[in-house]
Design a protein around this nucleic acid. Structure first.
Lengths: 226, 226
DNA sequence: TTTGGTATAATTGTATACAATCATACCAAC
DNA sequence: GTTGGTATGATTGTATACAATTATACCAAA
């Protein structure tokens, strides 16, 4: 339901609850709120100029996202992202992006394939010039198209969540020189999908995630998450 | 409050919000609330004897679970579970339970292995006697132990969610005669984990989910979800 | 009949008030 | 000094009041 995401976007933009939710989420993922830190409803509310009600609703959502833990009648505590979590997510994504690529072979549209090709072409351009911001945006677009092309709302939703979750560390990995390599891997995945070769597409998408993770380990990008 | 007794009774177990959340979730998964049906805060609140506040908080969580869709300033609409969703979930679970079993080889404790064995043994007993209720409970326990033994909070959380999500259809599949077969598959998975054979454990857990799904298809259990 | 607009009702969004629970500090008994 | 209990304050849980938005009904103009 692309409609759902659109509406969600509208909600986030115009409702206080959505703004609070996004703000706190950003602050946790960006490290402003440290691990185990207690979030108090009135304090957050005052900081953002709203009452407790939208803050509480945002808390309930953040709990389901796993970003905070709510202990009844006690408080809400930040559950910071750990190096182990990132490892787990990349291994989980490895399996799921593989499945996604497999399904895409049967369900991708010509328009989606064309857009993928355009994204990859553009990324080659920006990679050669070291335009990191554009690379990040194009990486986003490639994966988003891939997720939408698998014809599974369940899988699409799940992968988008994880993709968002590791946003910060992904920026770093792209900036650390993997951008060009990553884009070549994208190209191979796309070609396997275009050839309607599910086994190959799955294996390549699989390996794409493992490579991304190993690059992060090699570059020492995970050391700050402990 | 006209039904103070009911409220009091449940407050011991859950917060009002938790109660509302579970109740609505049950009602959606059980089909009481039909697809696209509108859920109104006051109506639900009256029905359960609570005010709008806990109902709203429950709605926000249900939205993130994907069980309802909230359109700002309009309402909350049920997003019923479809046959396609069930298929997707079982295919996703196939990959993830495989990963879980693989990780369990390295991380399971002796106590967990022993409890697994006990569960499987008990399940043999109840399977032979057609005790469906106990079978369902033991199936739950097996998978819960497996999820907890993989040493990944991320994966554990995810798999528990999906396990809950397909609760209703799982009951049916166990009642349709697959209970005993399923338990044998559990036993093989456990043995592979005990032998510390990750490839075998992954493959068996993988196939366990595929088999469960194919059984549902063969028995026509998914036809009611369209 | 159709169209457009306005008043009214219904519903959600937010803020606040009140109740229940938990944390802390202090004091008395030993 | 330690223990136990109570009072006090802080914080969350819930209910309600109010504001904003949307849906509906009705009427007038074409």
């Amino acid at each position: 339901m692309e409609n759902r995401d659109l509406k969600q976007e509208v909600t986030d933009k115009y409702s206080l609850r959505g703004r609070v939710f996004n703000r706190i989420r950003e602050d946790i993922l960006n490290g402003k709120y440290k691990d185990h830190e207690e979030l108090k409803e009135v304090a957050i509310g005052n900081e953002l100029g709203v009452s407790r009600t939208p803050v509480r609703e945002a808390f309930r959502q953040l709990e389901l996202e796993g970003l905070i833990q709510i202990i009844p009648n006690k408080g809400a505590y930040v559950t910071g992202i750990k190096a182990k979590d990132i490892e787990d997510i990349y291994m989980i994504r490895s399996k799921l992006e593989g499945l996604c690529a497999r399904w895409a072979c049967d369900n991708i549209t010509d328009e989606q394939l064309e857009e993928m090709e355009e994204v990859i072409y553009l990324a080659e351009f920006h990679a050669a010039r070291g335009h990191m911001e554009q690379m990040a945006e194009l990486d986003n677009r490639f994966h988003t198209i891939l997720y939408e092309s698998c014809n599974s709302k369940m899988l699409e939703h799940l992968l988008k969540d994880y993709h968002q979750y590791v946003w910060r560390v992904r920026q770093q990995t792209l900036s650390s020189g993997r951008g060009a390599v990553s884009n070549v891997e994208h190209k191979y995945i796309m070609e396997a999908i275009r050839e309607k070769n599910p086994d190959k597409a799955e294996e390549l998408a699989n390996q794409h995630m493992v490579n991304a993770y190993e690059n992060m380990v090699d570059k020492g990008l995970l050391e700050m998450y402990d």
